[in-house]
Simulated assay, not measured.
Amino acid sequence: METTVGTAGLPAVLDLPAGPVRGGLVVLHGSHAEQHSYFLYAHLARLLPPAGIAVLRYDRRPRIDGHDVPLADQAEDASAALTELRRHVGAVPVGLWGFSQGAWAAALTAVRHPVDFLVLVGCSAVSPAVQ
């Protein structure tokens, strides 16, 4: 189902299970994997709904003048995505799945907008400045 995320109206797709929803997941982007159609995100949307897990994928906010999207803005968008997901799935466990830079955004989001779980893929153990 097509939807949007946040005040920026970022294009999004919510893939829901055919049966009861057991949980939900918001997908957060790597720095160069910005579209909700990216193969890795689409794979999650095919794999998880049959197991009862809803998957919300959205397009990352565009870069401005070639500068990366600030992590605070990414966390704001992720919080909006969580709100949108919860609107459709109700009181089931929901979490964030962050890929590469999305893992930093997931951790920052979880501090501001509590979630039930985090899945961090390709996560650096140091800050962006150190990396």
Rank of each mutant, 00 (worst) to 15 (best):
H67Q: 13
P93H: 09
T83C: 00
S79Y: 08
D77E: 05
G66C: 10
V69I: 12
F99R: 11
G66P: 11
G95C: 08
A81P: 07
L71N: 07
I64R: 15
V92K: 07
G98W: 04
L85K: 07
H67P: 05
V69A: 09
G98V: 02
D65H: 14
A72W: 04
R86H: 13
L96W: 11
G90T: 13
V92Q: 10
P93E: 10
D65L: 09
L96M: 10
T83D: 11
Q74G: 11
P93F: 07
L85T: 05
V94I: 15
D73S: 15
A75L: 01
A75E: 07
G98H: 07
A80N: 07
L85G: 02
V92F: 04
V89Q: 07
F99C: 03
V69R: 06
Q74A: 13
A78I: 05
D65E: 14
V69Y: 05
H88W: 03
I64P: 00
R87N: 10
E76H: 12
D77Y: 04
P93S: 08
V94W: 02
V69C: 07
R86D: 13
L96Y: 05
D68M: 06
G95Q: 00
A81M: 08
R87F: 02
Q74K: 11
Q74R: 14
E84D: 02
L82E: 03
V92W: 10
W97C: 11
W97V: 06
W97M: 05
G95S: 09
G98S: 08
A72K: 14
L82Q: 05
V92H: 11
W97A: 10
G90L: 10
G98C: 06
E84N: 03
G66M: 11
L85Y: 03
A81E: 08
A72I: 11
D73G: 13
I64D: 14
E76G: 15
G66R: 15
D68R: 12
D65T: 07
P93N: 10
S79T: 13
G90F: 04
P70E: 13
A91D: 15
F99I: 01
A75S: 09
G95Y: 01
R87M: 04
E84P: 00
A81K: 02
L71R: 13
P93C: 09
W97E: 06
A80M: 02
F99T: 01
A80K: 06
D73W: 08
P70R: 15
V94G: 05
L71W: 12
L71S: 06
H88E: 12
A80E: 09
H67C: 04
W97T: 01
V69T: 13
R86A: 14
E84Y: 06
A75V: 01
A75G: 00
D65R: 14
H88A: 06
L71A: 06
R87Y: 04
L71G: 04
A80H: 11
F99Y: 14
A91S: 14
R86L: 12
D73C: 12
A81G: 05
